[in-house]
Simulated assay, not measured.
Amino acid sequence: MDLALAFATQLCPASAKRTIHELKPFSMNPGAAVKLSFHKKFSCSVAVAPDRIRQVSEVEVENKKHDLLRAVQETQRGLVATADQRSVIEEALVTVEGYNMGEPIELGKLDGTWRLQYTSAPDVLILLEAAARLPFFQVGQIFQNFECRDQSRGGVVRNVVRWSIPTLLEEQEGATLVVSAKFDVVSARNIYLQFEEIKVQDINISEQLQALIAPALLPRSFLSLQILQFIRTFKAQVPVRRPERRSVGGLYYLSYLDRDMLLGRAVGGGGVFVFTKAQPLKL
């Protein structure tokens, strides 16, 4: 009996109600006291467990996200990833995806601009490979911009690629390629993209080309000024969707989404994507 009382005193704080004192002093079932003491321990633990579990979980998620970003940082957005690196990245992806698996898409979180950190999608890797091989072509930052705030079933997404031609355009951000699509939420985590337009805009010519068109030491003619203005405001738009043919589209699975990371998988073997939140774009 003394052992049971001493054990019960250690399990719950002094300020707590010590139910053990209510036991009859000469109980013929000493095991009941021990059983009650364990019950009190369980009750005390449950009172603090949810907050502690939540805090540990948030720290764990952030650590796993950092592990994923560390795994992709040396791959040049996936261009030079080896088979071993892709295996490590896939394992890190699956780990992060598991934290909110099955939760429905929150369009309020999805809204905004996301910068590409890594992909295995062939259509994007072709661009990166071309920039690596061709001295007259550069690819800068690649973004996805979602407009879906206050929406419930979909919105607009724009794939934005900054690119340049050295000596003719400004480094890295000489021009912008924008591929626009409408998207609809078709299940808890899937969206369907319906591509509508490809556009080239925001052309920023280099200082060398400006000097060639309108030399600084000579009076700028009306024609040279018109040429400069035309280049700066030039936009080329090509519709993807035409009435006489089916629209181009695809299914996209949002495998993870929080305030600063977006993971996606193009359904049908189109590759994986790792994005982090970026500053808003002016398009």
Rank of each mutant, 00 (worst) to 15 (best):
P104C: 01
F26A: 09
K109S: 03
L110R: 15
H39Y: 14
V156I: 15
I89A: 00
R149Q: 09
G112E: 03
L116N: 08
P25Q: 10
Q73I: 13
S57A: 07
G140P: 09
G140D: 05
A49I: 12
F38C: 06
L125T: 13
S37Y: 01
T82D: 00
V96F: 03
A92H: 09
A71D: 03
S120L: 09
D51K: 14
V96G: 05
D123T: 13
G154V: 03
Q141P: 04
T19F: 10
T19A: 10
V157L: 05
T82K: 10
F143N: 02
V88F: 04
E103G: 05
I53R: 09
I20G: 00
K64T: 07
S87M: 11
Q138F: 03
Y118W: 12
V94F: 02
A81W: 10
L125S: 10
V46R: 13
L23E: 04
Q141N: 04
L134C: 15
E62P: 04
A130I: 12
E74H: 15
R115F: 05
K35D: 12
E129F: 07
Q117Y: 06
V59I: 11
Q76H: 14
E58W: 06
L69P: 10
R86A: 04
S57H: 09
V156A: 00
G78K: 11
I53V: 08
V157Y: 01
V72F: 03
L93R: 11
I53D: 03
